[in-house]
Structure formats: structure tokens, C-alpha cells
């Protein structure tokens, strides 16, 4: 068990290096020249060259990659032997603007001049996490109730109705639901703000009425999956011997449900919750753009349209890292919650 976790932990940096290399390569060989895009239709080749030099974009690919990961040296190497070069690269003072990913520096944005990618990303992640957690929370609660109801009524007519109802809610595309609700609640009834985000004083957006509509609509997504999961895992548990024993020993139906069914059925839900949090970025592409939420998904889309590769690269790296870590945590969590599972 411990050995397994240690092995995973040791392996993780290698995965991250591979991920960073692939990401950097794709971003590096992207079409066109970021400096050229920045300067638009009327660019002067001399200025383009100067800006490229200033940003270190004229260096060889390997140097740029290593610089991206561990940071570029302050003085550009010139006239050195190979060994000196490596030492210079590894140990000399870092360039203040290119400290390297390992120091949490993902470089500068192409679009937002002079702004650190990390500064851009982290405030957005916080917004997405808030919205995602609220929506997921609502979705999980509704889904679990539906799933439990379906399982306990297995074989009756409303078992399939609940399950397919949950799936139906999840299949509703956000770009139909959003305009309809916005039309009804905002344009016609003027009850709720239609979009936007209000982070208030403490950076908490969950107390503003602006979160109600997006959270409500986004909670539909997980309902189907959670209902299905909850139903099947409840059924699995209901049919287990120890639940039958508990029942036969005269335990109240309520106690059986809460203590035995509930606890065991919750396990797979952890997986779903964990993975949903790791996929905040992709999940937010469309919805955050429609709702006007300054989250990570919207930043991804904006950066993509602006071909702001450093931001996209940083996001890819961060998502990969969080995915790896969340998975590790889920696996460890499983072993603690369910001693029958052994890993390795």
C-alpha cells in the first residue's frame, strides 16, 4: 500500500515532465509568430526581431524548452564549451521574467502584455472552483436522492422514469437551457441577473444572486451520472449479505439505509466528484462563456481565440498535474473508505 503510493509519487514528476514537453512542443510549433500577431497588419520586421530577442524567442528549441521548465539564465550564454554551457544554464542567476515552471512562472501572456500567466490563471481557477463546487453540490444532492429513490423502488414503474429523467436533464444542452431561463427569469420577469460574476469583498461569488442561474443550470450535468451511479451502487449494496443480515436482525429501515447502504454507495461518487473538479477547464468552455463567468474555462477560450499559447500551455500543464494528483488522492481515499480494496 505505502509502496504503491510511493511508487506513484516517484513516477509523477516524470509524467509531468513528459506532459510539459509535449505541451511545449505543440505550443512552440504553433502556426505563425506570436510577436507578429501582436503587432498586427502593420508590422515592422526590425521591431519584430527586437521583441523576439527580448523575449528569448530567437533561441534554439531545446534551450527554450529547458528555459521554460527550469528558468532561463539571466545572461545569454555565448562562447562557452558544452560543459560550461550546461552549468551556466543550470546554476547561473535566473532571468527575472523567465523563472521557469518549477518556480511557478509560466512566462508572460502574449495577449496581456507584461502580465504573468500565473497571475492570470489563479484568480480564475478560484472562480471556477466556487461555481463548480456549488453546481456539483446541488447536482450530487439531487442525483443521490433520485438514485436512492430509484433503487429502493426497483422494478416499479418510476424506477426507469427517474433514471431516464436524470439522464434527460443531463443531456439538455446548456445553450438551449440558458437562453430559455435567461429569457424567462431575466428578460420577462426581471427576477435574476442573467449573467456575470460578482466576487464581492472577500472574493467569494457564492453569495451573489448572479450565481443562482449558472449553478442551477450547471448542476443538471452531473445529475444523470450520479443518479445512475447511486442507483446501481445502492442496488449492489442492498443485495449484499450484510445488509440482509442487518435487515433480518430487525434494524429499522432508516438505520439500514443510512448506515449500510448510504456509506458504501457513496464511494464511487467520490470518483465522479474528484474527476469533475479536475475537468473544470473543459467543462467551463461553453458554459462560462455563455454565462459570463470569469473562470478558467472562459480564459481558455479567450486565450485560444487570441492564440495566447503560454496561457493555454500553462492550463494544460496545471490540469494534467491536478488530474494526476486527484487520481492519486481518489485511490488513497478508496483504500481508507473501503478496506477490501488493495492497490498495487
Amino acid at each position: 500500500m505505502l509502496a504503491y503510493i510511493i511508487r506513484r509519487l516517484v513516477w509523477t514528476p516524470f509524467v509531468l515532465i513528459a506532459v510539459s514537453f509535449i505541451t511545449f512542443t505543440v505550443g512552440h510549433y504553433g502556426p505563425g509568430d506570436p510577436v507578429q500577431v501582436l503587432m498586427g497588419q502593420k508590422n515592422d520586421p526590425e521591431i519584430v526581431d527586437r521583441v523576439r530577442r527580448e523575449r528569448g524567442l530567437d533561441r534554439p528549441f531545446w534551450e527554450q524548452y529547458v528555459g521554460y521548465v527550469i528558468g532561463a539564465p539571466k545572461e545569454q550564454p555565448a562562447g562557452m564549451s558544452a560543459v560550461e554551457y550546461v552549468f551556466h544554464f543550470a546554476f547561473s542567476e535566473r532571468h527575472p521574467d523567465r523563472q521557469g515552471v518549477i518556480r511557478g512562472d509560466f512566462g508572460e501572456s502574449y495577449k496581456f502584455l507584461g502580465q504573468k500567466v500565473s497571475d492570470l490563471i489563479f484568480s480564475r481557477v478560484w472562480v471556477s472552483v466556487q461555481l463548480g463546487s456549488v453546481a456539483l453540490g446541488v447536482g450530487v444532492i439531487i442525483g443521490m436522492m433520485l438514485g436512492l429513490a430509484a433503487a429502493l423502488n426497483q422494478g416499479r414503474w418510476f424506477d426507469p422514469v427517474i433514471v431516464s429523467g436524470g439522464l434527460f436533464l443531463s443531456s439538455l444542452p446548456v445553450f438551449i437551457v440558458q437562453p430559455l431561463l435567461a429569457f424567462l427569469l431575466s428578460r420577462q420577469l426581471h427576477l435574476l441577473p442573467s449573467s456575470g460574476w460578482d466576487s464581492g469583498v472577500l472574493g467569494l461569488g457564492i453569495f451573489s444572486p448572479k450565481i443562482i442561474m449558472p449553478a442551477l443550470i450547471l448542476s443538471l450535468g452531473p445529475i444523470g451520472g450520479i443518479t445512475r451511479l447511486m442507483r446501481s451502487s445502492t442496488l449492489e449494496v442492498v443485495n449484499q449479505d450484510y445488509v440482509r443480515t442487518a435487515r433480518s436482525k430487525g434494524l429499522g429501515e432508516r438505520a439500514v439505509r443510512i448506515n449500510h447502504i448510504g456509506r458504501n454507495a457513496v464511494l464511487p461518487i467520490f470518483t465522479v466528484v474528484g474527476l469533475s473538479l479536475a475537468s473544470l477547464v473543459e467543462g467551463g468552455f461553453i458554459s462560462e462563456t455563455l454565462f459570463g463567468i470569469p473562470g478558467i474555462g472562459r480564459l481558455a477560450v479567450e486565450s485560444f481565440f487570441a492564440r495566447d499559447y503560454p496561457v493555454i500551455m500553462a492550463m494544460t500543464l496545471l490540469v494534467a498535474a491536478s488530474y494526476i494528483i486527484v487520481n492519486l488522492l481518489i485511490d488513497i481515499g478508496y483504500t481508507f473508505l473501503d478496506p477490501r480494496i488493495t492497490l498495487g
Binding site: T23, G27, M315
Partner: peptide, 15 residues
């Protein structure tokens, strides 16, 4: 598996 698939697919299709 660790890659955010969609994000990378987008990057790859663009580049």
C-alpha cells in the same frame, strides 16, 4: 490519460 484531452485536441488541430 493525464492530458486534458479536449484542450490538447484543440491545440493540435490548431497547430
Amino acid at each position: 490519460l493525464a492530458f486534458p484531452g479536449l484542450l490538447l485536441v484543440i491545440l493540435i488541430s490548431a497547430t
